[in-house]
């Protein structure tokens, strides 16, 4: 077993375990913090899989921006800081069943489809900032620009939605 494999198993365990905690913890702020751990572990796996730039973006945007945003949202909606007994709806069993079904379908597919296929990471092109940047601005420049328009639309939408009052008067 190579070092990469050991590291992957460890990081995978951390990611899966913290993800479970994200969806099961009784304290909302803890859920956000466990999400940080999950995202960090996934970023580590990205590093193992030669996606260097994606890993850093994951850390920057997810951990740096999204989780902070989520924490702000929790604060703005006056979420209680202590543990909440009724944080989950009373349909845990069907939800578990559905999630298990999803896992079964997806897991069966990937295991059956790629059983015995080795992932050779030696000598792989590492997705550094330079290579990734070159690829994006050469081959993927059109989707990139479209994405910028989408971001603009999301920005406008978020502003309109959160401005709230005014024309939506009476609420």
């Amino acid at each position: 077993m190579t070092v990469v494999e050991v590291l992957f198993l460890l990081l995978g365990l951390v990611a899966a375990g913290s993800a479970l905690l994200v969806v099961t913890t009784r304290t909302m702020v803890h859920a956000a913090l466990w999400l940080v751990v999950t995202l960090g572990a996934v970023a580590g796996i990205f590093l193992l899989l030669a996606a260097e730039f994606v890993a850093w973006v994951q850390i920057l945007i997810y951990v740096g921006a999204v989780v902070v945003l989520l924490l702000f949202a929790l604060m703005l909606t006056k979420a209680p800081t202590g543990p909440q007994p009724d944080l989950d709806a009373r349909r845990a069993l069907p939800a578990v069943a559905v999630a298990g079904l999803v896992l079964a379908v997806l897991g069966t597919t990937v295991v059956a489809g790629f059983h015995g296929v080795e992932l050779d990471l030696d000598g792989a092109v590492v997705g550094s900032a330079q290579t990734t940047g070159a690829t994006i601005f050469q081959q993927w420049v059109l989707p990139f620009e479209v994405l910028s328009v989408l971001l603009l639309a999301a920005l406008v939408g978020a502003i309109v939605l959160s401005r709230g009052t005014g024309r939506r008067g009476g609420e």
Partner: peptide
């Protein structure tokens, strides 16, 4: 909404 979503996921599966 979550009930609807559950049905959607099962249907997709």
């Amino acid at each position: 909404v979550q009930g609807y979503l559950m049905v959607v996921v099962v249907g997709a599966c």
